[in-house]
Design a protein around this nucleic acid. Structure first.
Lengths: 199, 199
DNA sequence: CCGAACTTTGACCCAAGAGTCAAGAGATGA
DNA sequence: TCATCTCTTGACTCTTGGGTCAAAGTTCGG
């Protein structure tokens, strides 16, 4: 790959990262290309050299963010060693929430639907979410089949976990640093109880 | 109150209801007064006779919706009779989710922060949420003190419940009618496990 | 150092949507 | 029926923000 090509890629990556930030903070409608450009110390027109328009930029932002995010979770799942199922699930939940809170503080807002994303984007978001859920779904069903876990319904359990995780960054944003770490632990511990057999 | 006065109030109520619908469906930014007016079979200008502007209308919508919603939950809490604590909590959760899904399908979107509501509104939203949480907080702490419930952290538990409930309408929207009822039950059953002592 | 390819700029266009208002249409009540 | 008060209209302005583009600036290989 030529030097020029590489530079371009780097540029694109940077733009997408900043765009993801803005879209994450403001939602689709309230984000302006002007602001994205400003944060990059560039003018709006320049963005159009790389992207056809707002939609395309938003798509790229979601695509990248969502993929990074999901791949990271999948990697986590394979790298987390063998241990009692509940401990394993807890570790996964904890790490996952921690990553969300620390590294993608605004990212998950992209995955809350209420904002009116363009229709094409919404489908892509749903797809990413499915892949994302799959990691936890596997853990849960395996645990249930082995008799280590008991759930009312796998779907409802996933739904509850997903909802909680996706709103965690919002909640934790208010808290001071130490309280935040505590909150992450608490959330993970709390969510594990969803799969443990009741007394 | 004069006949005229009453008519005006009725008019205002109607406007606010429709506005809440639109804001709920589209979010703040993507909603237009034009659309609100259209659904009312009126022109935009007419709205300005009753409200100073978009912000004020949105505030009124959130205020009304949030208050109705919260009062309804509070009423539910006092009307739900004495029974074992977990059954009581389950009933509350179930009813609450059911109301959300059936009667305010879009309403809770108003209470998800990601959309950029005007700053003044956000505070009001937070306040309503606090009042809203209080109902469940009371149930939980009472249960914990009595030794019937065990939680990792009351705050984390509330957070998980709130997140799940607030996203329930979105989830249930995809489902067919019977599946929806089942989903509501499952969610309630699932959430109750958050407070039951683990094995 | 030159020319070609790549990149950025800023002025510009345009549509959408918030907000205004004078004029008129309805109600109301004496 | 007239006078007044209430309400609605639709045409208007103004701002914002997406999108375009020719011209200027930058980079790079030869």
């Amino acid at each position: 790959m030529s030097r020029v090509q590489r530079k371009r890629d780097e540029r694109v990556r940077r733009i997408v990262a900043v765009a993801a930030e803005v879209f994450g903070e403001r939602g689709y409608e309230a984000s302006t290309l002007e602001e994205v450009a400003e944060r990059l110390d560039v003018t709006k027109g320049s963005l159009y050299y790389y992207f056809a328009g707002k939609d395309e930029l938003a798509t790229a932002a979601i695509e990248t963010l969502g993929t990074d995010w999901t791949e990271r979770l999948e990697a986590l799942a394979t790298s987390t060693g063998d241990r009692p199922r509940d401990e394993r699930l807890r570790a996964l939940l904890r790490e996952h929430i921690a990553i969300a809170v620390h590294e993608y503080p605004a990212a998950l807002r992209l995955f809350l639907v209420p904002d009116s994303w363009p229709a094409a984007l919404r489908m892509r978001i749903r797809e990413l979410r499915r892949r994302h859920d799959l990691v936890f779904r596997r853990e849960i069903t395996a645990g249930v089949e082995a008799g280590d876990f008991a759930v009312v319904s796998v779907d409802a359990t996933l739904q509850a976990m997903h909802a909680t995780m996706s709103q965690a960054p919002l909640w934790c944003a208010h808290l001071a640093a130490e309280a935040r770490e505590q909150a992450i632990d608490d959330l993970a511990d709390t969510l594990v109880r969803l799969v443990s057999s009741p007394r």
